[in-house]
């Protein structure tokens, strides 16, 4: 059984599509991007993928009816992936060396019932997939990791999490591109630069890319 995508109005300049899960969001984002490149979606200014929704922003309110027609037509013909299907990774693999010395490593071990070493093994044991961004430039919600690592956010967010901090929250892992307040459970740190406005594209992790975390202390990658 496939849940239907629901197209909802969002003010007078945008539409939001409600979907069953992130896999459908990413598939629809790709379908919209392809159709747009072929000239089949007009008046579209920006697209915002999130956990269960895809927001489509029109150039102006006058462009909204046409955009709604084009997206409606696309949705009627669209074959969404089954809800719960694993998220396909179609991009390159990005290797991220991590020093697993984060302040919440022991708490994550306690919450998951794993030892700290097993947390590191689980985090590095299988590749993650870049889901969506949004929290800050260059930040990506990574999905498809070891389900044993699902932990709640910290009860008290930190006022400052350093750039390069590697964290866990809910089913996601993520890396802070720059120092900011944050509530994720920080298990390690990396020197990889996630965001650089002089790079094209500036974000290192693009949706669909595969991310392989590597234990820098044992791999000899980074001291």
């Amino acid at each position: 059984m496939t849940a239907r995508a629901v197209l909802l109005p969002y003010g007078d300049t945008a539409l939001i599509v409600e979907l069953a899960d992130l896999g459908q969001v990413l598939a629809l984002h790709e379908a919209v991007t392809e159709r747009r490149q072929g000239g089949g979606v007009l008046g579209l200014l920006d697209v915002v993928p999130a956990a269960r929704t895809l927001l489509l922003v029109a150039d102006t309110p006058a462009d909204l009816p046409r955009l709604r027609d084009h997206v409606g037509a696309l949705l009627r013909a669209w074959q969404p992936p089954e809800p719960g299907a694993p998220i396909p990774s179609d991009g390159p693999t990005v290797r991220i060396p991590v020093r697993y010395n984060g302040p919440d490593l022991a708490d994550v071990a306690g919450l998951t019932g794993l030892s700290p070493a097993e947390v590191v093994e689980a985090h590095t044991g299988q590749p993650w997939t870049v889901g969506f961004g949004g929290f800050a430039p260059g930040f990506s919600y990574l999905v498809g990791g070891d389900p044993r690592l699902e932990v709640p956010r910290r009860a008290e967010p930190r006022t400052r999490v350093p750039a390069g901090a590697v964290g866990l929250a809910g089913p996601f892992s993520g890396i802070y591109p720059r120092s900011s307040p944050g509530g994720w459970q920080v298990i390690g740190e990396t020197d990889v630069v996630l965001w650089d406005v002089d790079r094209d594209p500036p974000a290192l992790l693009q949706p669909g890319a595969s991310v392989q975390f590597v234990d820098a202390t044992t791999s000899g990658g980074v001291p």
Binding site: H29, L45, D46, V47, V48, P49, L55, V57, F132, G133, G134, F135, A136, P137, G138, F139, S140, P201, P202, A203, P207
Partner: peptide
């Protein structure tokens, strides 16, 4: 700078 929301960049 519209069009970069998927990169986490607002307009």
């Amino acid at each position: 700078r519209p069009g970069l929301a998927a990169q986490g960049v607002g307009r």
